[in-house]
């Protein structure tokens, strides 16, 4: 069989760095030309820490967070369970198995089109890569809204500023940046910038995505959301990561791994999210 027609590969990669950059938040980088050359913003990797281990059993999905040079990929993750705890304990030179790049990735804005990026917490993971690509292309006007619960959770501000993106930071308790929710700030900006129709890219908690998607649909604005799904395989086999499709009777569910993880807002049935 001709393997070159398939975009995905399985690679055992050697970790270049794995450091805690915020409260329980880690940034990991590793060289891998095969993955880096194929990766697009919004795509993800299925990662396994130990091939022999039976617990945890399944691979876990991680958004591709960005590229360094042309041969290194990064992932950003929060330690939330056994798998991410094991991942966080790895050191330079340790290996992991990564399958990717998986999923569809973001549809980039047209030339000159204004892009509004809305990230809630770890939702920054795929949007950082999108920011890299958009700021490098230099023909888009990009504004990012970044929200965290408290100042303790805030990460990546310097790196984002380094990319030259227009950045607004919110925290729910007001301990850093503007007090409030990132969705409100995005909404206010839309009201102020009524002259042109920006395209919104959002990633974060389901409740945040629901609000953004519904408001974007109501305003008749293009909006892409990057969903998280509980995946068994990431390869379109197990059909675990179902997301209810809006309207469509022939396709009651989308699969986040295969049909997404990026969806145009109107594709999803937000009532059940």
């Amino acid at each position: 069989m001709d393997k070159s027609r398939y975009p995905m590969v399985e690679e055992v990669v050697s970790i270049g760095f794995n450091r805690e950059i915020g409260k329980d938040t880690f940034l990991m980088g590793f060289p891998c030309v095969a993955l880096t050359s194929r990766a697009k913003p919004g795509q993800f990797l299925m990662i396994q820490v130990d091939r022999q281990a039976k617990d945890p059993l399944l691979r876990r999905p991680f958004s591709i967070h960005g590229v360094l040079d042309s041969n290194r990929l990064m992932i950003l993750y929060k330690v939330v369970g056994k798998g991410t705890a094991l991942l966080s304990a790895l050191r330079e030179g340790d290996t992991i198995s990564a399958i990717g790049p998986l999923g569809n990735g973001f549809t980039l804005p047209g030339p000159g089109e204004r892009a509004l990026l809305v990230a809630g917490g770890m939702g920054i993971a795929p949007l950082f890569f999108l920011t890299q690509v958009l700021t490098r292309a230099q023909n888009h006007s990009v504004k990012m809204f970044l929200g965290f619960p408290t100042s303790q959770d805030v990460v990546l501000i310097d790196q984002l500023k380094g990319l030259g993106v227009d950045l607004s930071l919110t925290t729910e308790d007001g301990s850093l940046g503007i007090k409030g929710l990132v969705t409100d700030l995005w909404d206010q900006t839309l009201s102020q910038e009524s002259t042109q129709k920006p395209v919104t890219y959002a990633c974060g908690p389901a409740s945040m995505l629901k609000e953004i998607a519904q408001k974007a649909i109501a305003r008749n604005l293009r909006c892409y959301v990057c969903l998280e799904g509980y995946m068994g395989c990431g390869l379109g086999i197990c059909q675990g990561c179902a997301a209810k499709a809006a309207g469509s009777k022939d396709k009651p569910y989308y699969y986040v791994c295969q049909d997404g993880p990026v969806f145009s807002a109107e594709m999803i049935d937000w009532e059940v999210m």
Partner: peptide, 9 residues
Amino acid sequence: GNPPPRIVE
């Protein structure tokens, strides 16, 4: 198929 969540480890 069933509504999500459909799988748990």
